[in-house]
Simulated scan of single mutants.
Amino acid sequence: MSEEFEIAREFEVDAEPQQVWDAITTGTAGWQWPSEPEPREGGSAGMGHTVTAWDPPHHFAVRAENLQEIIPTLALNQLDHTIEPRDGGRRAWVRYVHSGIFTDNWDDQYDGASKHTDFYLHTLREYLTHFASRPVAFSTLDGPDASTAPDAFAAVGRALGLAAGTAEGTGVQARGPAGQLLDAVVDFLNPYFIGLRTDEALIRFFGRNHWGAPVGISVHNFAPDADAKADETAWQAWLDGIYA
């Protein structure tokens, strides 16, 4: 049965409103995935969305209807961002609202969308704080079918070498592809997601097995010589190896 939903979040960040605007419009590859809307109301915004508000750097919104061919359980999707200056424009306050209509399995869909929202918005703040405006090589990948098992995501933390009780903000040497040790900060950690921040990258691990999908990884690599395809190949082998 179809039912409306709304997920709303507010936060402040040490970034100017224009930097936030750039991040949510032209800089999405740095914290989510590449998507650049046409800069006008009525413009295309990708995945069937249309820009419904374009008032830089204050208000950006998009809307899509009849998305079932792309996302079978989503009939209406709306994303709304309001940005206001704080501290004389040196900081920004952001209100984000994701709303729409789920057509099936409402509780599970809402739970997944809500938890993903918190992780993506955290990654946005990490990007704005540490990497804003830097060129990025983005790659994303999914694990094999075995990574859909209910307990599959726990294997990711073990493979990274994260000790039990590791807290957010802890510096670690994580085990990456081919046994490479990554000097990183665990910037996000819960049973559903892990975020690692190195000096040159944001590496995100998604426990989508909790919602019946494969475990996933996205890499936002800001190194001058970053190679998105090489990152994808290396991390795919790492992830596949966990579930071999």
Rank of each mutant, 00 (worst) to 15 (best):
A159R: 15
P57D: 09
D225G: 01
D55V: 13
E41N: 01
Y120T: 10
Q68Y: 04
A230T: 14
V215M: 02
A149L: 05
R63N: 10
L141F: 05
E200D: 12
F153H: 00
R63M: 05
D227I: 01
I83P: 06
A167W: 00
A234Y: 00
D22P: 01
N77A: 14
R134P: 01
H116V: 09
A53R: 14
D14I: 09
H130F: 15
L141R: 11
G179E: 12
E168C: 02
R197H: 07
I242K: 10
A226W: 02
T82E: 15
R175L: 12
F138R: 04
P135D: 02
M47F: 15
R90P: 00
S2R: 12
S218N: 10
F193M: 05
D151N: 12
W54T: 01
L196S: 11
G216L: 03
E232C: 06
E3G: 13
G30R: 05
Q32E: 10
E38K: 03
A154S: 14
T117N: 13
A92C: 08
Q109A: 13
H81C: 05
P56A: 11
F188D: 09
A29H: 05
Q18R: 13
Q18G: 13
P72I: 14
S44F: 07
G88E: 10
F205Y: 08
T129L: 04
P224A: 12
S147Q: 02
L189P: 06
L189D: 04
G195A: 02
F206Y: 13
T140A: 13
L76T: 11
A184H: 05
S44T: 02
R175T: 15
F138M: 08
D87L: 12
R40L: 14
A164T: 13
A146I: 02
V219Q: 05
P56K: 12
I70R: 13
R158Y: 00
R91Q: 15
T129Q: 06
V172E: 14
T233D: 13
H122K: 10
L67K: 13
A132Y: 00
E126L: 12
G171I: 09
G207W: 00
P72F: 02
A184T: 11
D240W: 01
K229I: 10
G165D: 08
A154E: 14
D108Q: 14
N190Y: 01
D199C: 00
H98I: 08
D187Y: 11
H210G: 10
T170C: 06
D183H: 15
N77C: 11
I217D: 10
H59L: 10
A137D: 06
N105P: 00
S35H: 05
V136H: 03
T103D: 07
I203A: 11
L124P: 11
A154G: 11
A75V: 04
G30C: 03
T28F: 00
P34Y: 08
Y127D: 09
W54G: 03
E69R: 11
G157P: 03
A178L: 09
Q68G: 07
T233Y: 03
G43T: 04
V94P: 01
T148E: 03
P37M: 07
L181Y: 03
A184P: 11
A113S: 15
D104P: 01
E10R: 15
T117V: 10
S133M: 08
F138S: 02
H59A: 07
G46A: 06
T170R: 08
N77H: 15
T233S: 09
G27F: 04
V94R: 07
G112T: 05
L239K: 01
A230Q: 13
